[in-house]
Computed example of a mutant assay.
Amino acid sequence: MAPQFDVIAIGNAIVDLLAHVPDGFPEAHDVPRGGMVLIDSEKAAAMTRAMPGSEQVAGGSAGNSMVCLSRLGGAGGFVGKVANDELGDAYRRSMEEAGVQFIAAPLDQGPPTGRCHIAVTADAERSMATYLGAAGEVSEADIDDDMIRRAEMVFFEGYLFDGELPRSAFEKAAAIAHKAGKRAALTLSDVGVVERNRDELIRILEKHVDLIFANEDEARALFGHHETPAELAAEMAKLVPFGAITCSERGSIVYGPDQDATTVPAVAPVQLVDTTGAGDAYAGGFFYGFTRGKPLPSCATLGSVIASEVISHMGPRPVADIRQMAADRDLL
């Protein structure tokens, strides 16, 4: 049976609340600058009050990647949990309008739809406080065997790694994909995620993952005794056959069974406004090339093109015609 999807992602169905804030805002609200912290419903309410006029965007890391994949002309599916509430309806509608098939049924009982408060400081850095709500309820019951078999890849978002239910869902999906001769990918997402779950991450990477995405800090948290990105890539290759380590304005390093670790230059944005979603966009572009058998450096360049567009404005989704941008560089 021909694949229906290039990638099915399992991730946080999170509504992003974005706002520009004063420089000391992250520290004043106990949010790690440039990182992510999980918060409870009470803290979420306080953050909402502290960020009046926030822009609302259906986000979540893996969901953002699937939107980028779709806008390039790829076929993406998304397994994520929302509640049967107003934000949940808005999230599902937003994904489907972007051409991404939303697969999981909503929660009728339990916590409300999750949201992420994204505080953007003048240096374009984003600091995130996330209330998972319903998003953390993704489970094995949400994994449709037939849909996984009809995808080239299944993709898991590291932000969900703290939850046992979502981890089990990914393990089930990866096992189905591998049995069907397909591949599984994972993004590390956040240094804190890696530090809290290092041993379990290494187990799952060795057992289930064919392609890994990480930035330098996340990779270093996994392999702390290695300093350079090239050394980190060499360590990653012992666990996962394909990988990409992003290094901000210094580009990315990619490797594979037939590709020695190679540095691929970054694509400079027209202007730097908000780095929210840069890694997600990179993964979305990379997936488009990877599922079409393009060379890894081309996949990385495509990812960088899309990331450069996303960081040139507020919000984690592209607003320009990224397919035309990719075509102009002969990357499709």
Rank of each mutant, 00 (worst) to 15 (best):
A2K: 14
D16N: 02
P26H: 09
P32E: 00
V37D: 02
D40C: 09
A46N: 09
M51G: 02
G53F: 11
S61L: 02
G63N: 13
L72A: 05
G73C: 09
G77V: 08
K81I: 08
V82T: 15
G88W: 12
Y91Q: 13
V100H: 04
F102R: 12
P106M: 08
D108C: 12
G110M: 04
D123E: 04
A134T: 07
A135S: 15
S139R: 13
E140S: 13
I143Q: 10
D144K: 09
R149F: 09
R149H: 11
R149S: 12
E152I: 10
E152C: 15
G163Y: 14
A169Y: 09
A177C: 06
A184Y: 05
A184G: 03
A184L: 11
S189Q: 10
D190S: 00
V193Q: 02
H208D: 14
I212V: 15
A219R: 00
A219E: 00
R220Y: 00
E227G: 13
P229V: 03
A230E: 15
A230D: 14
E231Y: 07
L239T: 07
F242G: 05
V254R: 03
Q259H: 12
T262D: 01
T263C: 06
V267D: 02
P269H: 08
V273Y: 03
T276E: 03
A281P: 11
A283R: 10
T291G: 09
C299W: 01
T301W: 08
T301H: 15
S308Y: 07
I311P: 00
H313T: 09
R317Y: 05
A320I: 05
R323M: 07
R329K: 09
D330R: 12
L331V: 05
